[in-house]
Amino acid sequence: MQLNCKVNVVNRLLPSAGQSGPSRLVWSNVTLTENKASVIELSLATSRNKTGMKYKVTNNIEQIFSKFVSQGKLTLRFRQPAHDLCLSGEVRHMEKILAIIKGEDPQLKKGTLCPLLSNCANKVVIPKTKLNILSRADYPVTTSFPDTLTSLKISGIALKKFDRRLLHLKALEVLDLSSNQISILPESIHTLAKLKQLNLNHNEIKVLPPTFVNSTRVICLDISHNQLVMIPSCISRVSGLQILKLDHNKLRSLPSTISKLRSLRTLTVSSNEIRTLPESFQTLALDHIDVFGNPFEKIEQEIALNPESLNLKVPTLRAISAKSTIKFKLVS
């Protein structure tokens, strides 16, 4: 079995010598093999370590930390050498390694040594985490999107439909589909569980799916320059939302529940058809707001110009002086 993931090798003997090793994860190529003696070995290669490292796994694992394997994290503690291997990668890869080490997976290559030790630098592949597609020619039609992507921008290519393949990018944190022709968002968009920023400006979207409220990690939503006519009241459930851009739509009102977005700091709703703002609007702790270009209703109240009709009682100067004398105890 061979895979790419991030690895941090921790030497447990360094602290006793008053030293500390590297504390960051490095992209590495990990290979698990089984030799003719049925001994499982783990080989680790990085672009800097050209000779590679090999660990005996069979009867050499002191402890396995697998509490967060469902989040793609796994730590192996070896007896000899006194190293901890902290692995971070795809959940299915971590589960596969765990199954092999526990002897629960029979799919091991017998008699195969690590092929990376002779040419590690050429074999270590750093998975792509960022991808920008700005022309139709660059759009993957016959190939899939790398499932390691954390940031994806597909902008200005006249994309008419939301590509459902994007829903399989479980590591995605930033998605930019601006300046396209998308009109419908999938109901299952909330399955992008790690999504933090979603940019959909300059499209043709008319409805924000109610299921979007389950995207609880989203902190920035830009859906300006679309065809929205309303915002669902359940938007308040996106509790972490900090930036909300709704400019240049066809909104006639904002839901009163918007006041429940306690983390909201930036709200722009310029150039819509909004006539009034909800009363609860004033409870928002905004740093920036833009409501320019909306046909707000003017509240006009006629005031009589005849002083006698106002029935105003203005105290005399003597009365004001007497009140101040008593209040501040000015009598000697």
Rank of each mutant, 00 (worst) to 15 (best):
R165E: 01
N249A: 07
K160R: 13
L305E: 15
P209S: 12
H225T: 05
K160P: 13
V125P: 02
S66L: 03
L286F: 01
L284E: 07
Q71S: 10
L116P: 08
K206M: 07
I219P: 04
L185V: 09
S38R: 15
S38L: 08
T325F: 11
N11T: 06
L251V: 11
R252K: 04
Q71Y: 10
C5G: 08
D138N: 09
L42T: 00
L152T: 11
L98V: 01
T266Q: 10
T51N: 05
Q71V: 02
I231W: 05
T325G: 06
P210R: 06
C86W: 12
I223S: 08
K153F: 00
K130H: 13
K36D: 15
F78H: 06
L116M: 11
L85K: 00
N306E: 06
R265N: 09
K153Q: 14
T266I: 10
D84W: 01
K329F: 02
T46Y: 02
S309H: 05
G18H: 12
E300W: 06
L198P: 04
C120Q: 12
V91P: 04
F68W: 12
L131F: 10
I101S: 02
K245M: 15
P307W: 03
I157H: 12
T316Q: 11
H168Y: 11
D138K: 12
K73P: 03
I97M: 13
Q71T: 10
A285G: 10
G240H: 11
L25C: 12
T316R: 01
I258V: 11
L330S: 03
V291H: 01
N214Y: 14
F78T: 00
P106H: 03
K260T: 02
I157T: 04
G18Y: 08
V91D: 06
L198K: 01
T58A: 04
Q301G: 09
T266N: 00
N272D: 03
R164L: 14
Y139L: 14
P106G: 03
E104W: 03
Q19K: 15
T143N: 14
M230Y: 12
C5F: 08
T51M: 02
N59D: 10
N49G: 06
L251G: 03
L166M: 15
D105P: 02
N249F: 06
P278R: 07
S324H: 11
I299S: 09
H190E: 06
N60T: 00
L159Y: 04
V124E: 05
T148G: 11
S178F: 06
I182S: 09
A37P: 08
C5Q: 04
S28H: 13
K110N: 10
S224P: 09
L172V: 08
K123A: 15
K54E: 08
T51E: 07
K36A: 13
K260Y: 06
I182E: 00
D84E: 14
E95W: 01
I231M: 00
P209C: 05
N4L: 04
C114S: 12
K128A: 05
T191N: 08
R318A: 12
C86D: 09
K329M: 14
G52T: 06
L87P: 13
A37Q: 04
L149I: 07
A319S: 14
E95A: 07
E302V: 07
T33W: 03
D247E: 15
A319W: 02
S259P: 00
L32Y: 02
L195Q: 12
L108I: 06
